[in-house]
Amino acid sequence: MSETKKLLEVKNLRTSFFFGGKEVKAVNDVSYYINEQEIVAVVGESGCGKSVTQMSVMQLVQTPPGKILGGEVLFEGKNLLDYKPKSREMQAVRGAKIAMIFQEPMTSLNPVYTVGSQITEVIRRHKKCTKKEAWELGVKALSDVGIPDPEARMKNYPFEMSGGMRQRALIAIAVACNSKLIIADEPTTALDVTTQAQVMELLLKIVETMHTSLLIVTHNLGLVSRYAQRIYVMYAGRIVESGTTEDLLIHPAHPYTIGLLKSVPKLEERQGEQLIPIEGSPPNLAKLADYCAFCPRCPYATEECRTRPAPELRSVDGKLHFTACHLEAIPEEGK
């Protein structure tokens, strides 16, 4: 692993939102990295800060109320947080070197412009070319992402396309600009399963043929199990466990990950098997205690968990598998 190059490295990122004097720590000391040509997933429930982390990397956090308080975002050797959000340097990265795909493709495309004009707009912004060349690049990108009859589709408005096709059009923008990294924030949540499979296979093909890296932000553990090479699990603004997909799904070490895996229904389970849910609900980020945020819902929590400060990530096996839990070992029957 050490010889592969890190494409993006985020170190100790902290982003907070301020509402009426209260601080909501949405991203609390988050560090992660993604290698070249790697597929990494960030998993967590809604409100755990997984999207805000990506928005901070792209410097798209609305200020105020949000503020990036500290940390480093190293991309191709430069710290992106040194650039102002609206600076020329940041704009050269955003949308071109790092492309972002959002959950609902209808809201990230402008309904009153044709898809073609939106694709060429991005191409012309990042590449020196004439309108005609940009148009041709756009047509090629659309056919690359498997949209039939790309010439005609360029002239379509977003509402004339289906959800899956709109998502493909957004991926086409990333393809046309030769993005190094694609951040896909819940890329398939709004899509049907068969379309979801098509879009994910397309992303996989792009990673393989265009040597891009892919960061999937999702709550769907199945998706992660099929596509990701490494996983970061987030809870209440922190990364609580990280490791290879196999490590996390087969030998989960953090009680939250263990709980998540036990609470999803499986296709091949035996009849009458019961789901074991995680009791309670995710914490309010404005009222976080100093100790481990998962402690109130954790079935293994001890007195120690409530008295010691929030646990730091520590290695489980001396390699890539990290967990943020005080407990040395989770009782076997729990797994």
Binding site: A197, G222, S225, R226, Y227, L261, V264, K266, L267, E268
Partner: peptide, 12 residues
């Protein structure tokens, strides 16, 4: 069925 990814890593 095959489009639904499952959590079971080895099965997948």
């Amino acid at each position: 069925l095959s489009a639904v990814p499952t959590v079971d890593y080895y099965e997948e």
